[in-house]
Amino acid sequence: MLSIRDLELSYRERKVFDGFDLDVADGEVLCLLGASGCGKTSLLNCIAGALQYRGDIRGAERGVAYLFQEPRLVPALTARQNVVFAVSHLWQDKSALDAKIDEAFARLGIDGLQDRYPGKMSGGQAARVALARAFCHPSDVLLMDEPFGSLDIAVKMSLVDYISDMLAASPRTVVMVSHGIEECFALADKIVVLGGDPCRILAKTEIEEPRSDREHIADKDVKTRLIKDALLSNASD
C-alpha cells in the first residue's frame, strides 16, 4: 500500500500541504483531479522523492515509474536505448530486461521503433515509448502526471486503451493526475478531488465497474456531478 501521512510541504511562505493524508491500496488506480496549482503534481513529486517534504510516505521506497506530461526522451538515444537508460540499473537479470522491453514494445505496437530516435517519432509514438519505459520499471508504483495533456483526441484515446491493457497485464499501484474526467472514468478505481489552500481532499468517489466495462458506469452522472460540484465549490472559495 502507498501510504501518505501528515505530509507538509511549503513553497516559500505558501503551505501547499499541511498534515495531508492519503492511502492508495495495492493495485489501485487513483486519479487526482483539481484546479491548476492546487498541489497535484507536487504530491506526485513528493511520492517520487523529487521534493523535500516533511511527513511520512511509505510504499515507494523502491522508486517509482513516472509518466510525465511530455515523453521526456533523451534525443541522442534510440527508443530502446531510452528505456535501457532509465531502468537497466534496476534489473539484475539483463536478459529478463531485454524480454520485458520486447514485450512492452510489442504490446504498445511500437516494435518497429526500437532503433528510432525521438526526433524522428510522432507525438503519439514518443508517448508510447515513454509508456514502455514506465512499464519496464520494476517498481509497483506508477505515477502519471497529465500524460494526455499535450496529445490530440485520437492519440489520447489510444493511449488510454494502451494503459488499460498494460495495467491488466501488469497491475500497479497508480496515482494519476488529470484534468479530464473521461480519462479518470476510463482508468481509475478511485477519483479524488483536491483543492484548497493548503491542499486537502474535497471529494472522493469509487468506480466499481471493471476497467474493461467502463462504457456503462451505472451512476456516472451522479459521480460526475459530485466531482464538478467539488471543483466548482473550490473555484468559488
Binding site: V74, L77, L90
Partner: peptide, 22 residues
C-alpha cells in the same frame, strides 16, 4: 535531468548517456 533523477539513474550513466550526448 529531472526524469533521470526520478528514475534514479546512476551518475555515471547520466554523464555518459545524457549530459555528454546532449
Amino acid at each position: 535531468i529531472e526524469m533521470a533523477r526520478i528514475y534514479r539513474v546512476p551518475l555515471k550513466k547520466r554523464v555518459f548517456s545524457l549530459y555528454l550526448p546532449c
